[in-house]
Design a protein around this nucleic acid. Sequence first.
DNA 1: ATCGGATCGCTAGCAGTGCTAGGATCACGG
DNA 2: CCGTGATCCTAGCACTGCTAGCGATCCGAT
Lengths: 190, 190
Amino acid sequence: MSIQTRRDRERAERERLIVTAARKLAEAEGWDAVTTRRLADEVEYSQPVLYSHFKGKRAIMTAVAVEGFADLAADLRAARTAAAGSDRVLAEVGAAYAGFAERRPVLYDVMFTQAVDLPFATPEAPTALQDGFGELREALRPLAEDDDLEVLTETFWSGLHGLVTLMRHGRLRREDHDRRLALFISRMSQ
Amino acid sequence: MSIQTRRDRERAERERLIVTAARKLAEAEGWDAVTTRRLADEVEYSQPVLYSHFKGKRAIMTAVAVEGFADLAADLRAARTAAAGSDRVLAEVGAAYAGFAERRPVLYDVMFTQAVDLPFATPEAPTALQDGFGELREALRPLAEDDDLEVLTETFWSGLHGLVTLMRHGRLRREDHDRRLALFISRMSQ
DNA sequence: ATCGGATCGCTAGCAGTGCTAGGATCACGG
DNA sequence: CCGTGATCCTAGCACTGCTAGCGATCCGAT
């Protein structure tokens, strides 16, 4: 193996180090604590190295968001494949989605409100995003009827997103979360 | 009238001036353009005056958000009272909500993602918020059945919020917006 | 009419932000 | 062993929200 490949490997490792450090720091102290100085300090390099890997701070956050989408997709897949009766699939997947947002609020935040420049609903969207959307689509396929499956999936996703977002921001009474979720799922199932 | 009252009146006018200037500036150039310096320049006062009226920049944004909630409530009320058949009410109100978010994205932004410290779902929430929520509740009352009306309203609201938020952030195909809205309303109507 | 006092709004500055230009340092190839 | 090129750091820029402290202004009492 050439020297160049070793360098490339080290570069790739350092890039991952930056992303995971940003994620850990954010999950520990919130995104406000993730400044370029603090992050550089955390990875034990100087600030400018960050910019040799990423175009800017937002690009780092976007990288964290992509990781988040991969995690979310994995959670949804697990819930879908583990669901007992086929009529329970939607409820399980919905609960998994809401659970993800609740367990990892900081991650959900960067995925949906901070890293807004991520390409979506287009072929060049990261596969992690398409996977997650695909899980929702499969969970909904039995319910599609004559509705367009794609439209139904987007609508279902929107409902879940609204529920978790408004609750996270303190706009809904927390104690009724499960009832709202159950009501939404039941009505969406016709 | 005493001098004090005149001063109080002038203070109140200037406070309104600040809020409307912030709103106009944001709607014209986005919230990134609303810096304290720029805003002070716009109202033709120095920076510190802003802080004699508001605790900080976020408080100014919150004031703009409250104005936004009043506007939204007015839109919803107009849609609800103008709806022809009683089975059209929900569709009209939903369309009004989505239309508001589409027509005033910057305002909707500050209401739901920037000014997160606004009290909600509690008695001390500004009346504008309670009015808006009340409009949704009245639109849904005929559909409540044995579901708790409050829970149903929160769920409906969440769905609308998710639809407009994800679309605004480019996560949903714009051309299917009306179909998603129609699907959501029809399923929520049982 | 004039003066004392309190209010008011300004200038100047602080600490911290994202980002970058420039040079020093180090490892490599000849 | 030396020149060369990549690598990474120090220092600094322009900007942010916010505040201390002073100067002017206007009011009320003498």
